[in-house]
Structures are given as structure tokens and as C-alpha cells.
Amino acid sequence: MPGISARSGGAGFACRLIGALLLAVLLFVTSADAHRQSSGGDGSGAGIPIPNLTHGQMAVIADNMTAILAVADRQTGLDETARRLRAFVDWQYFFCFRGLVPGSLKDEESPFNECSHAYLAGTQALLLELRQTRGDRAEVRALVDKVGLDMIRNNAALVLCRFSSEAFNTADVVSPRWSEVPAHPPSLATFGGLAFLIGGALWLGLRRRTAPVSGPLPAG
């Protein structure tokens, strides 16, 4: 039924976002003093530079991200650079709540826009690095050509935002700008709603645990 389907979809989204929230908050608490947090890279502190990504390019990469990661995962000859870029994308994508917070991609004022730039810049760098792999280069070339055409059609290089000139590095994880959440209504509403859901679930759980158990009256 349409009503049930809509509720199920909303519940699924809420569950995914709550899961991402709880895990990301756990990570954030361990390193709350830094906005850019070192992930250690290869143990030497040196990471792989990742070129900047314009706002328009970010949208194109986001549309093709699933395909890019799928192609990367099918390759059997990934070099060290590609493996580290792939790991960075996973880590950064998770740390940015998997793009689930409204406005993360399209709103440059979103506290999650910079970290979205980071994982999408890493995804583009991964796609370009895949051209050096020993796997199915025909599949990689076809995807590179498709992304390139999408960039041209959308004038992606010309659509800029405040993070368009920022480069990244696999040794640094970019966390959301938490101090900007209260000033960004969509983000504030999202976390306010999640707090309400979590609080309601806890309250119901406690209520059920403390509710008296009814049973048959003792025989007189």
C-alpha cells in the first residue's frame, strides 16, 4: 500500500541516518579538537594529494559515484595509490554521514558540504588512477569518457563554491563543521528530529520495562 511504503521508506532513511550519526559521533568524540584529523596515512604521516573539485564537478561525480566504486572493486590489479584512495573514500564518506544530511551536496552553506567535497574529490582521483590498473581498462575508459561528457554538458568546471579551490589529502579526514549546524536550518532540523526519535525510542523502552505486569488475581 502507498501509505505503508512511504512510512517504510521514511523509517529506513531514519535508521540509516541514525546509524551513521551514532558511529560518526563516536569517532568525532575521540578527536573533537581538530577539524582536519590525521588518519596516519601509511604510517609516515605522508598522504596522497587529492586535487580540488568544483561544485559542478562534485555533482557529476556524485551521480557516478556508485559506478566508479563498483568498477574499482572489480579491478584485480589496483596499485598502492588506488587502494589508498579507495580506502580514503570509504572512510571520508562514512565520516560525512554517507551524504544523508539534507543539503550536503548542493548547499555550500551546509556544514557537511566541505566533507562531501573531500570524499567526492577522492572518488574522482580514484577514477583517474584506475586508468593505470592492470584490470579491465575498457570498462574504466568507458566510465572516464562518460564522466567527462557529463562534465562538459553541465559546464561543471564553471560552477564554483567556497570549497571549490580546496585540495585534500588521504592522510587527513575532513569532519563536518559542527559549529555551523545551529545556523543551518536543514541540518539543525535533521539532528533535532533524530534526537526526538532517539529520545522517544528510549522513553518507550523504559516505559515498557517499568510497566507493571498484569496477571490473574490470586485465589481467595
Rank of each mutant, 00 (worst) to 15 (best):
M1D: 13
M1A: 15
G3R: 14
A6C: 11
A6V: 07
A11P: 05
A11T: 07
G12N: 10
C15G: 14
L17G: 03
L17N: 00
L17T: 01
I18V: 12
G19P: 02
A20G: 06
L23S: 09
L23K: 10
A24T: 10
A24S: 07
V25L: 13
L26W: 12
V29G: 08
T30C: 11
T30E: 13
Q37N: 10
S39L: 11
S44T: 14
A46E: 15
A46F: 14
G47R: 05
G47K: 03
P49L: 13
A59M: 13
I61W: 02
D63F: 00
N64C: 11
N64G: 08
N64E: 15
T66E: 15
A67F: 00
I68F: 03
V71G: 01
A72H: 00
A72K: 03
Q75S: 15
T76P: 01
D79S: 14
E80T: 12
E80L: 12
T81I: 12
A82S: 15
R83T: 09
R83K: 15
R84E: 15
F88S: 03
W91C: 05
W91V: 09
Q92D: 04
F95A: 04
G99D: 07
G99C: 07
L100I: 07
L100F: 12
V101P: 06
P102Q: 11
G103A: 05
E108C: 06
E109D: 13
S110Y: 01
P111V: 03
E114P: 03
C115A: 07
S116L: 04
Y119V: 04
Y119C: 00
A121M: 05
A121T: 04
G122Y: 00
G122K: 02
T123K: 02
L126S: 01
L126E: 04
L127P: 01
L130G: 02
Q132M: 10
Q132A: 14
Q132R: 15
G135N: 03
D136C: 08
R137H: 11
V140W: 01
K146F: 00
K146Q: 12
K146C: 02
K146T: 02
V147F: 04
G148V: 03
G148R: 04
A156T: 05
A156M: 02
A157R: 12
L158G: 12
V159F: 06
V159L: 11
A167R: 08
N169H: 13
T170S: 08
T170A: 09
A171I: 11
A171Y: 01
A171P: 00
V173T: 06
S175H: 05
S179Q: 14
E180G: 08
H184K: 02
P186S: 10
L188W: 13
A189F: 12
T190D: 08
G193H: 11
G200V: 07
L202F: 10
L202Q: 06
L202W: 10
W203I: 08
W203D: 02
G205C: 06
R207V: 06
R208L: 12
R209L: 12
T210C: 11
P212D: 11
V213S: 13
G215P: 01
P216F: 08
L217I: 06
L217H: 02
P218T: 01
G220R: 05
